[in-house]
């Protein structure tokens, strides 16, 4: 009887450990549990994140960028999006911009040119929006399935809102072969 009780206790402990392991395995990872809150929108409409609003006004793709006298080519294609962004109720900047393709690969904005509009370099005051263009270098095959991601924190976007705007490019192989320029940010009324 004593042996049976001890055996039962051991089985109970094993069952508890197995249950704990199963629960831990089934739980989402910390990064998944704390993932950003998506605010989804379309090209041409205002999308309001917690601290800023953003509208993709136009989007195009090209084989090269023309920055002054310099031409920046790529092995993929350049996605150039014209944005109108503004702070909501407090001064803020957009410090994270990237494009995610249908395979969940994420491409951040290029660091080959300066993009103050989305790299934290431009602090916007409420009610005083800015317009400008950003450029992202992506593989040609990804160009047709991109979603633009914007957030105000460059290091950690978790547990905060993030705009997700589907970019209206249907086919990366149909991008312009001509180099395209990138508009600098300017205040708009």
């Amino acid at each position: 009887m004593k042996l049976l009780r001890r055996l039962g206790s051991a089985l109970f402990v094993l069952a508890a450990l197995a249950t704990a392991q199963a629960v831990q395995t089934a739980e989402p990872t910390l990064n998944h549990a704390r993932r950003p809150f998506p605010v989804i929108g379309e090209v041409g409409e205002d999308v309001a994140a917690r601290t800023f609003t953003a509208r993709v006004q136009q989007v195009r793709c090209a084989a090269a960028l023309k920055i002054g006298e310099h031409v920046l080519d790529t092995q993929g294609v350049w996605i150039v999006a014209k944005l109108r962004v503004g702070a909501r109720s407090e001064p803020t900047s957009i410090a994270y911009a990237a494009a995610r393709d249908s395979a969940d690969r994420v491409y951040q904005t290029t660091d080959r040119i300066s993009l103050d509009l989305v790299t934290g370099g431009l602090t916007m005051q409420p009610g005083l929006p800015y317009e400008g263009e950003i450029a992202i270098e992506v593989p040609t095959a990804s160009a047709g399935s991109l979603t633009l991601l914007l957030a105000d924190n460059s290091f950690d976007q978790r547990l905060d809102s993030m705009t997700e705007i589907r970019l209206s490019i249907s086919d990366g192989s149909a991008c312009s072969a001509e180099p395209t320029t990138v508009l600098l940010p300017k205040a708009v009324s």
């Binding site: 109720s89 407090e90 001064p91 431009l122 602090t123 916007m124 005051q125 409420p126 009610g127 005083l128 205040a187």
Partner: peptide, 11 residues
């Protein structure tokens, strides 16, 4: 309206 503005703005 409760909006806050910082000094030394870019403008």
């Amino acid at each position: 309206a409760g909006n806050r503005y910082n000094d030394e703005p870019r403008e």
